[in-house]
């Protein structure tokens, strides 16, 4: 259905996003993640956005909303690997990802979940 891969690693959902997803793909992300949350009851979701080259307001809003929904379903969401250019642009445009946690890469995101604590880089 889309370019998004959702796989389960230990008690986590690993979601990998393509470099430039269209709106339909971004909308599908929310759907797929919530379905998987229900079916497999993971502790949380790691969104690997290291390939993502453009994060516009629609994309950011969808991600922030999805994280809120995941939280309502008892999980946490960690965004991993945002590129510097994307972070600068997002900051300049005024996008916030709400209370979502972030990690430098997937490894660190997995560590954070395994430790069960907040991120070092932290919106706690």
């Amino acid at each position: 259905m889309s370019d998004i891969s959702v796989i389960r690693v230990r008690d986590l959902l690993m979601v990998t996003l393509p470099s430039d997803p269209d709106d339909a793909t971004v909308s599908a992300l929310q759907h797929q993640v919530l379905e998987a949350m229900q079916k497999r009851e993971p502790k949380g979701v790691v969104l690997d956005i290291s390939a993502v080259e453009t994060l516009d307001s629609f994309f950011a809003r969808t991600v922030a909303e999805t994280a809120q929904m995941v939280r309502l379903m008892g999980g946490r969401t960690i965004i991993a690997g945002m590129r510097p250019a994307v972070a600068i642009t997002a900051t300049q445009i005024g996008l916030t990802l709400g209370k979502i946690e972030t990690a430098l890469d997937v490894d660190r995101a997995l560590e954070m979940v395994a430790r069960g604590d907040g991120n070092i880089g932290g919106q706690k």
Partner: peptide, 13 residues
């Protein structure tokens, strides 16, 4: 503040 927000988005503090 902007610099700090951008660094946090990367996953650092």
């Amino acid at each position: 503040i902007e610099t700090i927000s951008a660094v946090r988005l990367l996953g650092a503090e």
